[in-house]
Amino acid sequence: MGHGQGERRDRMGEAIAMENSLVKFFSAKLIQSRKALLLLCLGVFMSITGAIATRTVFNPSIELAAFNFSDIPLVTVAELRRSPAAQKLAFIDVRTPQEYQRDRIQDSFLVPISAIEQGSGVEQVRQIAAQNPHSTLVLYCQRGPRSYRAYQHLEKTGLNFIVLSGGITAWRKVVLE
């Protein structure tokens, strides 16, 4: 057996060990939602491809700690449309200016996730909230992950936020403006 085959076998062994580690990690947490299952699949894929391609290993305790989905208030498009409070919503798009230019929810405000993570966007969101004092702030991106990150940065402000589950992709399946 050549040196390359032995190294590949070692990498595959690392990937399999990481997959087993991920399964144990999620089993211990008693997979509570479809999001956790999706993250499990993503983690397994990342661990296998990462271990083979770059010999890096996905560490679920570090990578997934950023997303405690049970703490993020999600709302679906259908729930928003049925809600009597639907008239008192202020949508905040956390995507890039280019994405916002191509498509956005009508009357939404652009506050890119990059600005929120740098701190300047937090002040923009406070101003939007001040201009819309009786509104619930709805964070959205393309499908959800950037909105989750934005929520985690903004939840300390004490403002009333919800995250649009599925982002503008879900919105466009139901609402045509």
Rank of each mutant, 00 (worst) to 15 (best):
M1A: 13
H3M: 11
H3Y: 14
H3I: 11
G6E: 12
E7G: 10
E7L: 14
M12S: 07
E14R: 15
A15E: 06
A15D: 05
I16F: 12
M18I: 13
E19Y: 15
K24D: 12
S27W: 02
K29S: 08
Q32F: 08
S33P: 05
R34Q: 12
A36N: 14
L37R: 10
L40A: 08
L40H: 01
V44W: 09
M46K: 14
G50F: 07
G50T: 07
A51H: 07
I52V: 11
I52K: 08
A53P: 09
T56N: 15
N59L: 11
P60A: 03
P60C: 00
A66P: 04
F67W: 09
F69V: 15
P73A: 03
L74D: 06
T76V: 09
T76S: 11
R81V: 13
R81W: 12
P84N: 02
A85G: 14
A86S: 15
A86T: 12
A86D: 08
K88M: 13
L89S: 05
A90H: 05
F91E: 02
I92L: 03
D93G: 01
T96V: 06
T96F: 08
P97R: 08
P97L: 04
Q98T: 15
R102T: 14
R102Q: 14
D103K: 07
I105A: 00
F109R: 09
L110G: 05
P112W: 03
I113G: 04
A115N: 07
A115C: 14
I116K: 00
I116A: 01
I116Q: 01
Q118T: 12
S120K: 08
S120M: 05
E123S: 08
R126D: 04
Q127N: 08
Q127Y: 06
A129S: 03
N132Q: 04
N132W: 03
P133K: 05
T136V: 10
R143L: 15
R143S: 13
G144H: 02
P145C: 05
S147P: 04
R149A: 04
Q152L: 04
Q152N: 13
E155N: 10
K156A: 02
K156W: 00
L159M: 01
V163T: 01
V163Y: 00
V163I: 05
S165P: 07
G167Q: 01
G167K: 01
I168A: 00
I168C: 03
T169K: 10
W171S: 01
K173Y: 10
K173S: 09
V174K: 08
V175K: 06
V175G: 07
